[in-house]
Design a protein around this nucleic acid. Structure first.
Length: 781
DNA sequence: AAGCTATGTCATCCA
DNA sequence: ACTGGATGACATAGC
């Protein structure tokens, strides 16, 4: 039953995630508050078995101990809260956006529109570092989340992984998804395998069909793309993509795109994206176009000139702008864009997509993994030096049949845009498997990393699901574990969500060494004032934890709680028992005993004296009985707890027989040893608990590092995709002296160390690529 | 009645 | 040498 409900609830969450992925906004609050009682009951309801409470209760019951009064409600509360926040988080799933192709998709099919637009050079002037790629991303998340987050799950748009130490629920879900994704993508080049993507996209398409959101559009878009059609993203209208040919070929001016993007920037993260492209173009001040740069966008690469701009910054600006713009695109469009099966150039490996046959052999051999920004900068010279001659081939910014920017983002075969059908046609001719992938090295490296990550996960008992579970476990608001079996003792829950790894680790490290030892020492030294020995500080910490609602659920802990809970209450109910030396309130030895030298029976009322005396006899310890029998004239407490000097003083005041003295010394010895044993056990327990906490902290750190690694890998992969896209973009725009595009099978772009990009023959590029491959191997040797 | 836990006690070590 | 804390081992009580 428990597992069934858990399964149902998890399934519900997964379904909700799926709905969110395809853009169906799930207003959980509404459901939870009133709309769907079953859902509410499943998630929050006390009848739901999918609460940690159930496990704890079960465990507690099985332990044979009653549940601590606080444990149930807190458990319920935290569990419900965590689940609620978990579901809520779906609505603001933090997946970084981006998409290089978001604005490129907008382009008209090449050749469909004459190059009437005056082309101009790059206009990106705002300087920004790499953080510009990440910065807007972060800042944008809030608004981005309102659009759904499906696109990034596919494209892994996260540029700026949330590296915060605390894992949020979103992060956990994200990791979970990423894990699965990485698994799916982890097989080398299959990461971009068309068929692979096709499957995923089919799934997405099904989901979209179910969601009834522009599903027809995506489906049509996919088919249309397959037929070399272009689909209007907004209307779903398909229209044939004209085959670009020579001079007639139109290409969207990169500058125009940048200008368009730039125009969108001022609207801010949450600003409405201008629906009409014309409005955008109008909004762009013409002064923003450096006249000198006009028509320089797409010059032959070989005519590299000095770059007046920091192209890296421009690229990053472009990235950020595109991210911003992608964000602005409405949800459905994004979803469609990124889930459109074969049409999404980024989601499809352009090297393998049948209808985007081209670029698989484009080589970026010199692209280095470490220098992503450098990779970007490699494009700069060529972009700047693109000849004026190519300006005529630029696509007009505003498609003739496009009235909405959203529509322009809707669909389109980017590959078709980047690479004219001619190119595509020639691409596969000579594109053999032996030819390196344009970003093969990078991707392979990423794949290696991912594979190694997988290995690591597997080696260390992590499977992705476990990792996510682990993080879930550690990162839940309540700190309560979803999977009780995984971590039977949820001591970490005592620290709640606020306990960061550092705080908990510090507390654990300090408490084990100092708390118990210092408590005992301080307690013994302060005996005269407090009349208590040992456990004082321990009980304080315990009380503090209890007050925090931190109730340990492991048996030991609850037992420990009972130890200090029951006895004081008993004593309060039976005040006379405080004279019994054998009470277990080690931390609450009454100071009143100091004044009560005589045995308590003398203070009892005569009416119930006998009865109470019997009870008292039962409560008295053996030593007290012995002391009574031997007529020891002072209490065992004094015998035990007095300092040696006072103790000796006390003994000297009385004429005691040897037997009495021996008994007194035994009582003192046993009493002290008893407290010592208690302290010892307490210390032992603390040590165990702290070790447990340390283990949990380490596991949390491990999960966090794992998550960060996944995030970095994802970012890396995304950047590689961007580089690929840009490579395609640039290469596709190159024209020989006859105005014809270069064949990717015969030519490749090569990055030089100084940032310049050269168009070299493929054979030469391959040779250099092999050389590049050997070098790392040699280094490893 | 057996098993388990909590606690007390003893023996021992050590500071 | 004495005192007392620490701790393993064992005993006992209670559930």
């Amino acid at each position: 039953m428990l597992s069934l409900k858990k399964y149902l609830t998890e399934g519900l969450l997964q379904f909700t995630i799926l709905l969110s992925l395809i853009g169906v906004r799930v207003d959980v609050d509404t459901y939870l508050t009133s709309q769907l009682p079953p859902l509410r009951e499943i998630i929050l309801g006390p009848s739901s078995a999918y609460t940690q409470t159930q496990f704890h209760n079960l465990r507690n019951t099985l332990d044979g101990y009653g549940v601590h009064p606080k444990s149930i409600d807190l458990d319920n509360y935290f569990t419900a809260r965590r689940l609620l926040s978990q579901v809520r988080a779906l609505d603001r799933f933090q997946v970084p956006t981006t998409e290089v192709n978001a604005w490129l998709v907008h382009r008209d099919p090449e050749g469909s529109v004459s190059g009437s637009q005056p082309s101009s050079g790059l206009t990106l002037e705002s300087s920004s570092g790499l953080q510009d790629v990440t910065g807007p991303d972060n800042g944008v998340r809030e608004s981005e989340t309102e659009q759904g987050f499906s696109e990034d799950l596919e494209d892994l748009g996260a540029v700026a992984p949330p590296v915060s130490g605390d894992l949020t629920k979103e992060d956990i879900d994200l990791i979970d998804i990423l894990w699965r994704q990485d698994i799916d993508l982890g097989a080398g080049r299959e990461i971009f395998d068309y068929s692979h993507r096709q499957k995923e996209q089919d799934v997405d398409k099904e989901l979209q069909d179910g969601a009834e959101q522009d599903d027809t559009w995506s489906g049509e878009g996919a088919e249309a793309l397959a037929r070399n059609l272009l689909v209007d993203g907004e209307t779903g209208e398909s229209f044939p993509a004209q085959v670009p040919g020579g001079e007639d070929q139109t290409a969207l001016s990169l500058e125009e795109c940048l200008r368009l993007l730039e125009a969108t920037c001022p609207f801010g993260e949450n600003a409405e994206f201008p629906a009409d492209i014309s409005s955008i173009t109008e909004a762009v001040p013409s002064e923003s176009e450096p006249p000198g740069l006009q028509n320089n966008l797409l010059s032959p690469l070989l005519t590299g000139t000095d770059s007046p701009f920091d192209l890296e910054q421009q690229w990053q600006d472009l990235m950020s702008i595109m991210e911003m713009q992608a964000m602005e695109v409405n949800t459905s469009t994004n979803e469609i864009l990124y889930s459109a099966p074969p049409g999404d150039p980024l989601s499809t490996n352009y090297s393998l997509a049948p209808n985007t046959p081209i670029n698989q052999n484009v080589s970026l051999h010199q692209a280095s993994l470490g220098g992503c920004s450098q990779d970007f900068s490699l494009f700069s010279p060529e972009v700047e030096s693109l000849p004026v001659a190519s300006s005529s081939t630029l696509l007009p910014l505003v498609p003739s049949n496009s009235t909405s920017l959203n529509s322009t983002f809707g669909s389109t075969n980017l590959a078709g845009l980047f690479f004219p059908p001619q190119l595509n046609g020639t691409a596969n001719d000579t594109a053999g498997p032996e030819l390196p992938d344009p970003l093969g090295g990078l991707l392979d490296e990423a794949m290696l990393d991912e594979i190694s990550l997988m290995d690591l996960a597997i080696e260390e008992g992590f499977n992705p699901v476990q990792a996510s579970q682990l993080e879930e476990e550690f990162d839940s608001d309540s700190g309560l574990s979803l999977d009780s079996s995984h971590s039977p003792s949820s001591l970490s829950s005592s620290e709640g969500s606020s306990s960061s790894s550092s705080s908990s680790s510090s507390s654990s490290s300090s408490s084990s060494s100092s708390s118990s030892s210092s408590s005992s020492s301080s307690a013994s030294s302060s005996f005269s004032e407090e009349g208590a020995v040992g456990y004082s500080s321990d009980s304080e910490t315990l009380d503090l934890e209890e007050a925090e609602g931190a109730v340990g659920y492991q048996p030991e802990y609850s037992k420990f709680c009972r130890m200090s809970y029951q006895d004081p209450s008993q004593l309060s109910c039976l005040p006379y028992l405080e004279h019994v030396g054998h009470n277990h309130t080690y931390n609450m030895a009454p100071s009143a005993l100091d004044s009560a030298d005589l045995p308590p029976p003398s203070a009892l009322k005569k009416g119930s004296k006998e009865k109470q005396a019997d009870f008292l006899d039962k409560q008295m310890s053996r030593d007290e009985h012995r002391a009574r029998a031997m007529k020891i004239p002072f209490t065992n407490d004094k015998i035990i707890n007095l300092p040696v000097e006072e103790f000796n003083e006390l003994l000297s005041k009385y004429q005691l027989s040897e037997a009495q003295l021996s008994l007194i010394r035994d009582i003192r010895r046993r009493g002290k040893n008893k407290m010592a044993a208690q302290n010892c056990r307490k210390r032992k327990l603390d040590t165990i608990l702290n070790l447990e906490r340390d283990v949990e902290d380490l596991q949390r750190d491990k999960a966090r590092l794992l998550r960060e690694k996944v995030e970095f890998l994802r970012s890396l992969r995304q950047m590689k995709q961007k580089v690929q896209s840009l490579y395609q973009e640039v290469f596709g725009r190159l024209r020989d002296e006859n105005g014809r595009p270069y064949s990717p099978s015969q030519y490749a772009l090569q990055y030089a160390g100084d940032g310049s990009v050269l168009l070299i023959p493929r054979t030469l590029a391959d040779q250099q690529a092999r050389r590049q491959e050997r070098k790392p191997k040699d280094r490893r040797k």
